[in-house]
């Protein structure tokens, strides 16, 4: 399984980014190879509109199975993610990546 996180950094101890569309980084953890892939999404801050679908598209290119985030995506982004068949879990906005991953493994996160 490939698990995606919206993050403010690029390692296990980095805080999650509660926002989806304007998340600073997209991190994808591959449970088979135990490695991270990362996407620097910071350029999105200059977009006045459409951050959600654009970030969803960036995430789609990384082919995750699951997304763990904070507040949850907005309507447009949710439409894209639904088409991409990515399962979404929310409510991890105030955790670190590691805490968010543990919470996900223990079924403590809410499905979007």
């Amino acid at each position: 399984m490939k698990i995606a996180f919206t993050a403010k950094g690029t390692d296990w101890d980095a805080p999650m980014d509660a926002r989806f569309g304007r998340a600073e980084y997209l991190l994808v953890y591959d449970e088979d190879t135990k490695t991270f892939a990362q996407f620097d999404n910071r350029a999105i801050k200059d977009a006045a509109h459409g951050a959600g679908p654009q970030t969803a598209q960036n995430l789609f290119e990384m082919h995750p199975d699951v997304l763990i985030t904070g507040n949850g995506p907005g309507g447009n982004a949710a439409t894209v993610l639904e088409k991409a068949g990515i399962k979404i879990y929310i409510g991890a906005g105030d955790k670190t990546i590691k805490e968010a991953y543990t919470a996900y493994q223990n079924n403590q996160l809410k499905e979007f």
């Binding site: 977009a47 459409g50 679908p53 654009q54 969803a56 598209q57 789609f60 894209v80 088409k83």
Partner: peptide
């Protein structure tokens, strides 16, 4: 189409093009 759209209103997703009219 996706590359030239400044407003992220056109998104290429796998084998389809998605259009967001409000954007």
């Amino acid at each position: 189409c996706q590359e030239v759209c400044n407003y992220h209103a056109v998104i290429k997703m796998a084998d389809q093009i998605m259009i967001f009219p409000e954007l």
